[in-house]
Design a protein around this nucleic acid. Sequence first.
DNA 1: TTGTAAGCGTTATCAT
DNA 2: ATGATAACGCTTACAA
Lengths: 352, 352
Amino acid sequence: MALPPKKTSSTSPSAVSMADLARELGVSMTTISRALSDHHSIGAATKQRVLKLAKKLNYQPNHLAAALRRGQSRLLGVVVPYIEGKFFPSVIQGIEQAASKAGFSVIVCQSHENVELERRNVETLLNAQVAGVLVSLARNTQEFHHFDKVRSRGIPLVFFDRIPAGEQVNSVVLNDHEGALQATRHLLEQGCRRVAHLAGPQHINIYRHRRQGYLDALAAFGIAPDEALIDYSDMTTEDGAAAMRRLLALPNPVDGVFAAGDSAILGAMQLLKSKGISIPRDIALAGFSNEGFTAITEPRLTSVDQRCEEMGEAAVRLFLELAAAPHAPFAQRQVVLQPELFVRESSLQRQP
Amino acid sequence: MALPPKKTSSTSPSAVSMADLARELGVSMTTISRALSDHHSIGAATKQRVLKLAKKLNYQPNHLAAALRRGQSRLLGVVVPYIEGKFFPSVIQGIEQAASKAGFSVIVCQSHENVELERRNVETLLNAQVAGVLVSLARNTQEFHHFDKVRSRGIPLVFFDRIPAGEQVNSVVLNDHEGALQATRHLLEQGCRRVAHLAGPQHINIYRHRRQGYLDALAAFGIAPDEALIDYSDMTTEDGAAAMRRLLALPNPVDGVFAAGDSAILGAMQLLKSKGISIPRDIALAGFSNEGFTAITEPRLTSVDQRCEEMGEAAVRLFLELAAAPHAPFAQRQVVLQPELFVRESSLQRQP
DNA sequence: TTGTAAGCGTTATCAT
DNA sequence: ATGATAACGCTTACAA
């Protein structure tokens, strides 16, 4: 019996490699590699021997080496504006689930709504040799050259939720138009006749579509749009309160508000309550995103749910398809998910 | 705009390497490496030439190769129970900031409060050859052997917030005892005399310490502890409501509640409001974590802030120290942060 | 079915 | 101050 130079010396930083297995078994490294990666050209018996020894010696593959050799890792890079709130964590959750199922790990970067950081994040991910990049754009990203390098290296690039304007890209988005349409229609069905809209920056697809959904719902009810009832902002809670204050000062008062985001509608709600205005009796409210806090305000807030996890899963599925087709056709793929309106007390019983 | 990715050689997936620079400049790769990594043995002039060419050719270092060669990447692995809510995103934010400053990227994994997933996450991180591992334990982790491999490979291991019980580890924690003490003392100072406590699982350090802080505050006011006033649960909103219902049924009613988490105190608040019990007049409330929603409930909730970002930064600092001392002394380092009580209406004006 | 050997792009150890 | 060269651990033509 061969005397092992070192057994498991407790502070052995070096793991067991394929070479070790090969030596131990008296076969070549090729055989080991094939056995471990389930290659077809390998004898069943040999494979078993290798697998057994690998388990016994607790062999751990060095993914770095494999990635270097193959020119690509099993890492999936994700860039999001932020991870607070409910939306992005849930999307990431969906991504992780789907990615892990396909044998990929996920590395998440935040752009903090800052193009410059977004640019650096993309560099970081490329340096890590990620196999793919999934992005939801920062608020102020209006120029997209930092993604050229991703494409030119042939790395699958998928945008989700906030996608580039006027570009042909692979994307997964919610049908924001439909969500806004449903929410606004719901307010109208509850008896509202002067519905205001708290809109986000219009260079961002989601906010543009939500505004259009709002307008189309009005049109369907034969109501003429009124720009005075549309407030444009960054949709923070403060923005929502300020907008509400402005709307209250209007000669002809509003009786409903649909906001393109939950923070804004929260701000509006807080202002209304501070003024003693009843919700939904005097003014009905509906938001967008179905954030966690919509269920704890009083009254609870009606809001459009965004199918967060589905979005993450869909983004990964799209990535996998792109990765499977090395020199993919020029056509970029779009996936559109259907929203769901969660009706709560902030918008109910307007017409008894 | 940036539609076609064909700039130079349209489908050139291969980046420029150090060998390319060397050839171009007629020097050796060693020189290139030295110039780029700011080694001391290098002529200033040569260095400039290399740097200039590198910039011109847009050289991007292949971190994978460097990591393989050095046996370690510039990635920092983080394992957290979940990323929803405010606490973990903020900690991660602190980690990213500090890590990026030190030239590290961060890869985040969620254990979803599941040891089995936590175990797999650790494996994933090791496979990615992370330079360090930062962990906050899952709720049901009571056995810590899956971290042995991290240590035995000589990879710095730092726990934060939820740390292993009865083990000597490097850790960054909040002074939970002090936070609970402050919150409970505050309730007592507001005139409460029968303060209940919604406690979390006692095998988790933070909940154990919060309970002790609660007890010590009572003792400081000469109040005998009463186990009937302590409710043990997983601290969800539902748990909080159920606990409150139980407390209300007590013959001798409580006049204050301190919960070891904000979700639980939220549940308690919702139940009290549904029963028409006035907060804080009849019962004063205080929670722990200073979650975002504590500022939007009515009344707003008093809560203990956990210095989330500082915790992240401290964890990275600790990692960097450990990484700097290759064969560190046996002593493990502890960092303790001081909490801050945010007093809001849910606990005020009990004694007019 | 199995083996040989040439890299992948760096860093590190020599020597010059 | 610079260079030649050998690893790091794995994949993959190409041979046998």
